[in-house]
């Protein structure tokens, strides 16, 4: 009937799952450790890059994307593209009008502490 993809479901060997877990734990340690070292403006990007790598490991191995119908990965990537589109445009705009934006400011006498 419909279009079929590959078959025989992939069964992940335990060593592979364990290796992925080990990588994820090491990356978690790295992402914490990186905050102890100063990389200037790079820190946030390092943190995000580590998070993306971790996410990729979870997606590829725990969620089987590597062995799955490629379209499922397309869905995941598309959703990320649209999220970044949303965040990107909103960020560009809010940054651009920030100086014209008047908000209440804490009055000086209340700002002690």
């Amino acid at each position: 009937m419909s279009v079929h993809f590959e078959h025989e479901h992939h069964v992940s060997p335990i060593w592979q799952l364990a290796a992925v877990l080990a990588v994820l734990l090491i990356l978690t340690f790295i992402t914490v450790a990186v905050t102890w070292i100063d990389l200037g403006g790079l820190n946030i990007w390092v943190a995000l890059a580590v998070a993306v790598v971790k996410a990729a490991f979870v997606g590829l191995y725990f969620m089987h994307l590597r062995y799955d119908a490629p379209f499922n990965a397309v869905i995941l990537i598309a959703s990320l593209v649209f999220v970044s589109l949303f965040i990107g445009f909103s960020l560009i705009d809010t940054a651009a009008y920030q100086d014209q934006f008047e908000q209440p400011v804490i009055s000086s006498d209340a700002a002690g502490g």
Binding site: L85, F89, D93, A96, Y97, F101
Partner: peptide, 18 residues
């Protein structure tokens, strides 16, 4: 359709750039 939403916001304080 996902790339044009700001045309509802031309007069709402959206930046000139966007």
């Amino acid at each position: 359709g996902f790339l044009v939403w700001g045309h509802h916001m031309f007069t709402s304080g959206q930046s000139a750039l966007l």
